[in-house]
Design a protein around this nucleic acid. Structure first.
Lengths: 344, 344
DNA sequence: TTGTAGGCGTTATCAC
DNA sequence: GTGATAACGCCTACAA
């Protein structure tokens, strides 16, 4: 109730013990007499005492601050991640400090390191594509900074990763199209130096090969994940002599670009052309026709990342730390895909 | 170069002065001999010394942490704001801690207060609609917590506000439609308990009255700012006996909903119906036809907010603190609006 | 199980 | 202008 700041000394005095004992209670030490602990807990509750983070940090070199490092233009994705991490943060009294940065920048690693050190962050969550930089992970390891990388594909070391199995989702998307009698299935990939792009493309590759679709090389075009790039790539694809009947884009933005091109060329979607995106962005359900796409459980992934990260920081439950977290994006079927009349 | 942590004591020893003097240099005290200052600055530069934030905070009860408080579902807006604040943060060595919260929650104020206190935040930036709650501002004042509220309309106290003149933008939008010979101009407003909604509506009201359009009451429908609400409201509007020839929506989301309804009803946009949004969201340039809308300089506003906030925290330049910051959203003309053939 | 003493890195007080 | 010295609130050997 009282509004003046109550410190560990106050608690100690009120409980008639030394502050060392109060400290033990705060930090859940098991070496405190049951009665003593109960008394102290009671007083803490009554006074509303909360240990001062800065003092705590100064003494134990911790900050109760988590960092979020990202070089990703997708605001919706970022927002989901922030909320996901925060979903778990409250558990341990952590706060989230955000840090957008530039993937291309040569000093990204130094930049991140400085970010962590100048605020003594307890750990960081890194989003793709920055999370794909192995050197960053190595540097963090060298500096003993706990981190979790959120990536696409498989993780070689479960301890530091939360993984989204994008390849599987694209595989399912292609499979779905095949069910719809599509054979001429093209793909607009993301930048192929991104792991997420490789991963999604591999889903396409595996699925089309498994179905023995035997597609020409030029059915695969590399885009940049941007809307404009979707337009450019779709223009190439839809001008092909043997026009694809379906296009899978590496993300919704490019799918929207492809849709735009189709409309411009008078190609009916989905009657004459099926289009799939990836992300289930805001866009996906707003454009007409609504996009068939794949949705990652982003918030859930972020929450899992926070859980692992905090476990690492606090040397908590080892099973949480080493547990492999792999989530599967879910195919969302909407209006931009339709069955092709089977050829005779 | 060296990687071990260098402290103020090291600097003091190397400079042959007391740490109090080094402290003075760090804090730009003017009571330091020029030569002494130069020497110390040199050593600081050489060693790469950076004062420890926690220790500093513990001693001066500051954290060099800024908070961002928001209850706003618009991820794109949030992201822009974060980047804008960060644009300025680097100047003073501040970091940004994010805090989404619930506008409706009864304990919002207590929640925000706890957020600030538990991390000893130096100040916060509050986004609409949470920023519209005067009681929150008052509580913050009571607790001596520096803050900036980003709001629509006019600010009664320039010191604590950064303002976007949304009404003016809607006025211009209506004016533009009138130029296009539109007279039957309807509006889907936002929730009328939001200041931003009132503000935008007032732009509509003033413009239509000024042009003596004499519109029926039922040309104004209150929405919730959500896509689905745009659909519902547009359904009402477009079923009116005297159908509007233009609809202004309180945001792009609802404008997208209105567009959807028009398409469903076979009403051609923009030939038979013009539609305007507000925000210039991602959506606006992706849907077809692309939306005519209004764009706020969000990032710039956020940067201005950070500048004011830091000035307040540091008791800096009074002119910055009291300066009125009012920005004007810009009308962006795209494809969803067109001229009506003038009646004869 | 509990307490004592010292330290974490900085700023604030007050004297010189 | 400059410097001891004491906070700031907590943690952690070490001792009892």
């Amino acid at each position: 109730m009282s509004d003046v700041k109550v410190t560990i000394n106050d608690i100690a005095r009120m409980a008639g013990v030394s502050k060392r004992t109060v400290s033990r209670v705060i930090n859940n030490s098991d070496k405190v007499g049951k009665k003593t602990k109960e008394l102290i807990d009671k007083i803490i509750a009554e006074t509303g005492f909360v240990p001062d983070k800065q003092a705590r940090g100064l003494a134990s070199s911790r900050s109760y601050l988590l960092g979020l490092v990202y070089d990703n233009p997708d605001a919706l994705y970022i927002d989901e991640v922030q909320r996901g991490v925060l979903d778990y943060c409250s558990n341990g009294g952590y706060e989230l400090v955000v840090h957008p940065c530039s993937y291309k920048s040569e000093d990204l690693i130094a930049n991140v390191l400085s970010f962590v050190k100048r605020s003594k962050l307890d750990g960081i969550v890194i989003l793709p594509p920055a999370s794909e930089i192995d050197e960053l992970g190595a540097t963090l390891d060298d500096n003993n900074i706990p981190y979790i990388r959120i990536v696409s594909g498989r993780s070689e070391n479960a301890e530091n990763f939360v993984v989204s199995n994008d390849g599987q989702a694209v595989f399912e998307l292609v499979d779905f199209l095949i069910t719809l009698n599509h054979e001429k299935i093209a793909m607009i990939t993301g930048p192929m130096n991104y792991r997420s792009s490789k991963e999604r493309f591999s889903g396409y590759k595996v699925a089309t090969e498994k179905a023995k679709l035997n597609l020409p090389q030029n059915y695969v075009v590399e885009g940049t994940n941007q809307y404009i790039s979707g337009i450019e790539c779709a223009n190439v694809l839809l001008d092909l002599p043997e026009r694809p009947s379906a296009i899978i884009a590496n993300n919704d933005e490019m799918a929207a670009g492809a849709l735009k091109v189709a409309v411009a060329k008078g190609i009916k979607v989905p009657e004459e052309l099926s289009i799939c995106g990836f992300d289930d962005n805001l866009l996906a359900s707003r454009i007409m026709p609504q996009l068939t796409t794949a949705r990652r459980p982003v918030r859930q992934m972020a929450k899992a990342a926070a859980k692992k990260l905090i476990a690492k920081i606090e040397n908590g439950n080892p099973s949480v730390i080493v547990e492999e977290v792999v989530v599967a994006p879910k195919v969302v079927i909407r209006e931009s895909t339709a069955a092709l009349s089977p050829k005779t």
